[in-house]
Design a protein around this nucleic acid. Sequence first.
DNA 1: CGGCATCCTACCTGATACTG
DNA 2: CAGTATCAGGTAGGATGCCG
Lengths: 119, 119
Amino acid sequence: MSDDSKDTPSGAFIGYETCPVRRTLTVLNGKWKPLIIYELLPAPCRFNELKRRLPGVSQRLLTAQLRSLEEDGIVDRKVMEVVPPHVEYSLSEKGRSLQPVLQAMETWGENEVKNFPIS
Amino acid sequence: MSDDSKDTPSGAFIGYETCPVRRTLTVLNGKWKPLIIYELLPAPCRFNELKRRLPGVSQRLLTAQLRSLEEDGIVDRKVMEVVPPHVEYSLSEKGRSLQPVLQAMETWGENEVKNFPIS
DNA sequence: CGGCATCCTACCTGATACTG
DNA sequence: CAGTATCAGGTAGGATGCCG
């Protein structure tokens, strides 16, 4: 889930490096990643708050996908050494640069209802 | 996945119908769906041609995701009754309306290399 | 050519318990 | 609070092989 451009299986694999959409999808590849980024766009957020805003996610996956986004340089993780612990997640510059992608998704989701109502 | 207005646990469920991004992700949910749409944007395409352009996809998944996109009204499937069979996939109006989303992904994938080179 | 059918694995969730 | 660990169960995805 966190590897990509390395183990390219020999040969006719046009994939990840040459197609910009694939590169984007590699970073966004994870059930909750786009939503996590979307939630972090307006403001940084703590772990449980994020979990609360993403109904359906398990803490296991939320942790894993946050780690993955952190590795990809999309999300920053700031730990305050206090009791009780306080961990704040925020978007990096690179993460914020994804805003147009999420924006386009948001716009489509809104228009879809107007143009093609779900009965 | 199709209902939620009923079991909304008192307010805190931002879920599928109220969050436009979630709605979009529901339609694009599938490893190859965005890429399929991306490939169909310029022109309609036959099954094996599509398969050839998406290295790494299995025909099982390609079939399944095309069916799913068809059900969601994103993709049109046209069968020519000839020998050998000729099946052409194209984007519906609704499918073409996703262009800005794919466009944003493409742009980000391109800029990502310039702004944050992959070593 | 464009699929199904089958089998099998990897991933995701849910629940619960435990740590610093 | 913010995780990690574990197990069960479900679904998505991958690798074949057969068929009209």
